[in-house]
Amino acid sequence: YVRPQGGAQDFKKWGNSELFTLTYGALVTQLCKDYENDEEVNKQLDKMGYNIGVRLIEDFLARSSVGRCHDFRETADVIAKVAFKMYLGITPSVTNWSPAGDEFSLILESNPLVDFVELPDNHSTLIYSNLLCGVLRGALEMVQMAVDVRFAQDTLRGDNVTEIRMKFIKRIEENLPAGDE
């Protein structure tokens, strides 16, 4: 992977979601052909998202110059207001905090991944945008946070809003490689 040349300017210049939406659609269609059932496709989407997240975090930190977050609430704000805005051009709202402050929801008013998408009847259990969960999980793991991410509601499946539920599991201790002390 080579970072786009020209940096921040090139990054902004394109500003087009159609190719992205259609390409994602082509990918999901291909996965549905390659795997036998929706669960397998969901898993594969999550895995691909994870791979993206692991690499995206570095790109994100470099471009955003966001510093270390002090708590999970700050992390939630950075994800919604900086990361989503930067990559997908949308700003989800952060709501439904659990009393312990370890769990919240991202409500997506619009989702560029699902523009003009309809799920056929025989794919009722497909979590179409599951890639996003993988991206969030992968990216946060790289900054030592283990989180559980899943879709709680999805407009594609008839819900009124799209809701991603995120739960903080634990801080990952940095493991020094064996023999490197």
Binding site: D10, F11, W14, F20, L27, L56, D59, L88, S110
Partner: peptide, 11 residues
């Protein structure tokens, strides 16, 4: 909505 070029590149 404006999706960033980076998002497409990663995908």
């Amino acid at each position: 909505t404006e999706v960033s070029l980076s998002a497409f590149a990663f995908l």
